Simulated scan of single mutants.
Amino acid sequence: MKPLSIYVYGAEQICASCVNLPSSKETYEWLQAAIARKYPDQPFQIEYIDIFNPPAEKAKQEFAKRVVEEDLFYPIILIDDKIVGEGNPKLKTIFAEMETHGYTPAS
């Protein structure tokens, strides 16, 4: 099983359509803890990316620009370039995608 790359694209400011939801950063921290509990000792990397200040990598800059230009609901959760969550992400959807990559939930 290869380690999955999970990206949480978001911003400090909560999106207008996402009032009363956790911030992107809070979602990132919650997701990191939930995945680690569900899939202990299985390799994954999770990274938070600020859509208004993305890292220098071209792919990350382009996706961050797309989020802003297309007015997508953030945070947006990507697993290996596939959107698995938007605005208020669902753990069930994220876990289902991880399991298609061979991850096994803890019993």
Rank of each mutant, 00 (worst) to 15 (best):
S24P: 00
A11Y: 02
I49Q: 00
W30N: 13
K90C: 06
E97A: 13
T104P: 00
T100W: 03
A36V: 07
A56W: 01
Y7S: 05
E62Y: 02
C15Y: 01
P40E: 09
E47R: 09
E99G: 08
K2R: 11
G87M: 02
K82M: 04
P75G: 03
G10I: 00
A64M: 03
W30L: 12
K65N: 09
T27H: 02
T104V: 15
T104F: 04
A56I: 03
N88V: 02
F52L: 09
I35Y: 01
V68S: 02
K92C: 01
S107A: 14
K90R: 12
C18G: 07
L4G: 01
N20Y: 12
Q61R: 15
Y39G: 08
K58W: 01
Y9H: 02
Y7M: 10
C18Q: 14
E70P: 00
G85K: 00
G87I: 05
P89M: 13
T104N: 06
K60E: 09
I51V: 12
W30D: 15
G102Y: 07
I76W: 00
L72K: 15
E26L: 13
A11W: 00
K58C: 03
S24I: 00
A34V: 04
N88D: 14
F73I: 00
L91G: 04
K2A: 10
D41M: 05
P40W: 07
Q13H: 05
A34T: 11
I49M: 06
N53M: 11
A11N: 09
K58R: 09
P22F: 01
L31W: 12
A16W: 03
I6V: 15
A36M: 10
I49H: 00
A11H: 08
G102C: 11
P3W: 02
T93Y: 08
A96S: 15
T93C: 05
